[in-house]
């Protein structure tokens, strides 16, 4: 009986593994191969000619570099602003009582339940009259709106999870309200907040709808550039090279986060 169930479990596990390999590892691998392929014709399993020709072609383009810089600037600005706005709000939601608290909390959810594209279009129309379309500020604002849900709900949960007794113990040994926050509440909530910041950064980096509708044509981010290249030129390698480049910042961010806060706490912050 036990034997049977473990066998069945293994089968199930392998099934999931195959599924993951087929739909995640394989496409990622293909993109990687394409990025370093100079020639790859149909029946060959691997590229027939390897090389960095398309890398030098892509990296030589000034629009790639300016898009890369724009994307990084945009992501950093949005993440920083979001933290400044949302973290105090999250603390207020977690620890203070004020009228309309639950309505406010729900409103962030509601905005996200709405079809995003339609929402962004109506905002874009509004931005048109405010002269914000095609500006860095406009894109920052639209992407900031996207991050509100994540940056308020996650840190609110994190602040709420900090034990009251821990905070009281800090008061007890002589900490002022601010010192309690600085030395106990914030460090306790930090792994979750770091996860939220990281996700905000990565999401902003890869966001396309808002960036396109509000930012086009003057503000061009990496993902937008990639879409453009794929649409206009049927050279698979361009897209592949850009994909690998796009993968770098998120990988760097995740590795950095793991270094700073440790794998365990980080997973805990993401609910793992």
């Amino acid at each position: 009986m036990i034997f049977l169930s473990t066998r069945r479990f293994d089968f199930f596990g392998y099934g999931i593994l195959l599924f993951l390999i087929f739909f995640i590892v394989l496409p990622v691998l293909t993109v990687f191969l394409w990025a370093f392929a100079e020639q790859w014709f149909y029946p060959a399993v691997l590229p027939t000619k390897w090389g960095f020709r398309f890398w030098s072609l892509v990296l030589a383009r000034p629009d790639v570099w300016s898009a890369f810089v724009t994307s990084i600037e945009l992501s950093l600005t949005v993440t920083a602003l979001s933290a400044v706005i949302c973290l105090p709000a999250a603390y207020a939601f977690a620890r203070m009582d004020f009228p309309g608290k639950s309505v406010f909390m729900m409103s962030f959810l509601m905005a996200n339940a709405f079809p995003r594209f339609a929402l962004i279009i109506s905002i874009a129309v509004l931005f048109l009259s405010l002269d914000l379309v095609g500006t860095f500020t406009g894109v920052v604002i639209i992407q900031l709106l996207n991050t509100l849900l994540l940056m308020i709900w996650l840190p609110t949960a994190a602040f709420r999870a900090v034990s009251r007794e821990m905070e009281e113990a800090a008061r007890d040994v002589g900490a002022s309200a601010w010192q309690v926050f600085r030395y106990v509440t914030l460090p306790q909530a930090f792994p979750t907040i770091a996860a939220a910041l990281l996700m905000t950064f990565v999401w902003t980096f890869y966001e396309t709808e808002g960036a396109w509708l509000v930012g086009a044509p003057r503000i061009r981010t990496m993902p937008l550039l990639m879409m453009q290249m794929i649409n206009n030129q049927l050279v698979v390698q361009y897209g592949a090279v850009l994909s690998v480049m796009l993968w770098v910042p998120s990988l760097a961010a995740i590795l950095m986060a793991r270094r700073i806060i440790g794998g365990d706490t980080f997973a805990k912050g993401l609910g793992g």
Partner: peptide, 9 residues
Amino acid sequence: FQSHALWGH
């Protein structure tokens, strides 16, 4: 405190 309330960090 009952829960010891030590600061884990």
